[in-house]
Design a protein around this nucleic acid. Sequence first.
RNA 1: GAGAGCAUAGCUCAGUCGGUAGAGCAACGCCCUUUUAAGGCGUGGGUCCUGGGUUCGAGUCCCAGUGCUCUCACCA
Length: 523
Amino acid sequence: MSQEEHTEPDLALQHPESDARAQRLRKLADLRTANRDPFSVERVERSHRAADITNSAAAHWAMPDADRSALRFVTAGRITAHRLKGKVVFADISDESGRIQVYVRRDDVGEDLFNEFCAYDLGDYAEVTGYPFITRTGEPTLHVVDFHLISKALRSAPIGKTDDEGVVHGGLSDLEMRYRYRHLDLLANQPARDVLIKRCKVVSAMRRFLDDAGFLDVETPVLQVEAGGAAARPFLTHHNALNYDLKLRISLELFLKRLIIGGIEKVYEIGRVFRNEGVSTRHNPEFTLMELYQAYANLEDIMDLVEKMYLFICQQVNGSSTFQFGDKSIDLSLCPWRRLPMLEGIRQYAGIDPDELRTMEMAVAACKRINVSFNLETETTLGGLIEKLHEQYTQPNLIEPTFITDFPVETSPLAKRRQDNSNLARRFEIYIACQELGNAFSELNDPLEQRLRFEEQVQQRAAGDAEAHPMDEDFVEAMEYGMPPTGGLGVGLDRLALVLTGADSIRDVILFPLMRPNRRSIT
RNA sequence: GAGAGCAUAGCUCAGUCGGUAGAGCAACGCCCUUUUAAGGCGUGGGUCCUGGGUUCGAGUCCCAGUGCUCUCACCA
């Protein structure tokens, strides 16, 4: 600790009423003077968590008073409410399990300690020892016989008050504050904690499912010379000692396929990828992607796996096979899920017949006929235009789980072609609650074809498409050593968490979403 | 990247036609020994986002900037 920090309590004593923080510093100094420095505490031996006492109090209520008051429960947590009532004070102590009301009487602890307890601020951490009882108003409560402060909050946290109906008054609702200062969001808002926990359960359930299915959990490089495996612009960085530029990965695909080539038959990675694109309620520049590859499996095997895996995750996270989307209940156990070829969906929802989409000119004419809401000028390929129609017209209708199949091959440079129609890729995407929740291929394993696909992409790049896939000679060479037929899947985990938690924005399921630096961040 | 909106006490928010900056909660003081959005009386607390401009006078009107939100465009 610096000398400057040591002087702060003294400054507070000189200006004791200047502000709330100074008052708290003064209280801290008082505690230190009384040899009860909260920051000297290192360890707390809790016998119960807050919510456990609530249960125990009811269980012990039948005991004779004398026996029950001889019990000693120890718990600790943040003080989230206090109600001083003359010579007795009630306080709420909250930990991760919930909250417990504690009750301190002056006659029990003596005047000095009673006054000290009364001086504790909202946000402080206390350890309390006592026995359970139920108040006249019926609330399980810990009757405190001993306590001490174990950490001091120097700032007043935005802790709201909850009324009988569970409505929180006050608290923290400003979205910028919630995202920028997530610690305040989490300590003030129980729903924020619930979403965090659910998101973690999504990831752990997925890992458990894949581990149990025999997939190997691996890690591959984030820093890459060329960022491939997806259509996106990368972030650039630089290695000083080796003096060359690097890119942050935009997908996991190419390295995982090398593991397949190396003889690993079932492999997956859950990792952060980075795409240098816009920010929205559905996009964050860094997000968590899961990709898996299974040798000897085809597209239908992956569909089967997706149905089983998503059902498992939903059951683990929500405790049932259903989840809420708006006022609808979506049941993931109704297998097999709907399968809809992309062109069929466009016929159904955009009213354009597949025969009208055979050439770029015909497709543009058809789009003009139905007055599409997007800019036709920016579309350079027929496949791109078809995908656009799908996103604009079909996707908003895909509430129940749906596999969209038969993607245009020119937007799928890493997927096999259909044997019976070389314009279509052996690829599907999963849609649930109108969100794209997965993208799968029968992976292209023909190195000669792969080179041609990359060359087409390089041409699109030369024509101005900054997101077209770059040539990756090393990858093509790796494939020339022989890659088994393989099914692959990629899933944006933030989106999956978004849907399963019913969150409004991807920022609700990303703990620290990207924010522009504000004035306080620049020092 | 484009358009619209928002920015006032620690938190949630009012602020009329341009005329001394307001409430609830939180904080501080007093009263209250089973309260619970505890209650009662009293007190303190402001870079009205930043910088210019108009005006006798700006939280309010004008211009520029910053951040956030929403919609659109690109992306998952």
